[in-house]
Design a protein around this nucleic acid. Structure first.
Length: 101
DNA sequence: ATAGTGACTGGAA
DNA sequence: CTTCCAGCCACTA
């Protein structure tokens, strides 16, 4: 089992309508303090993948902005479509939407 | 091989 | 609230 495979299977467990952070996924996947690796793994995901990559956001409870793409806009749209609410600062209320395995 | 960078984070200042 | 930094490491030029 590769590290990325574990990351993907962990992300796949996030239920619809809930979110998790990069650091949280890293810890659950057995690679604490390697949040960046989670970001890279998701970035490398093929578009047709069934992994719910949109449910992973940063520790500030906001959708991370990309340097060379507008994918974060799609991410936010997908999350809103499954019921996630963003406040006026573009943040999610962890009390209500954070996934607690 | 070296240096800069980035879907990151928790703690310190 | 903001900035800085160490930890972390694959990828790119």
């Amino acid at each position: 089992m590769t590290t990325n495979a574990r990351i993907y299977s962990t992300v796949a467990k996030i239920p619809r309508g809930r979110v998790a952070t990069y650091g949280q996924i890293a810890a659950l996947a057995g690679i604490p303090r390697q949040a960046r690796k989670v970001g890279r793994a998701l970035h490398a995901l093929p578009v047709e993948s069934s992994v719910p990559w949109q449910r992973v956001i940063n520790a500030k409870a906001e959708v991370s902005r990309r340097k060379r793409s507008e994918a974060h806009l799609l991410q936010r749209q997908l999350l809103e479509e499954e019921g996630i609410v963003f406040d006026e600062h573009g943040r999610v209320n962890f009390k209500r939407f954070r996934w607690r395995p």
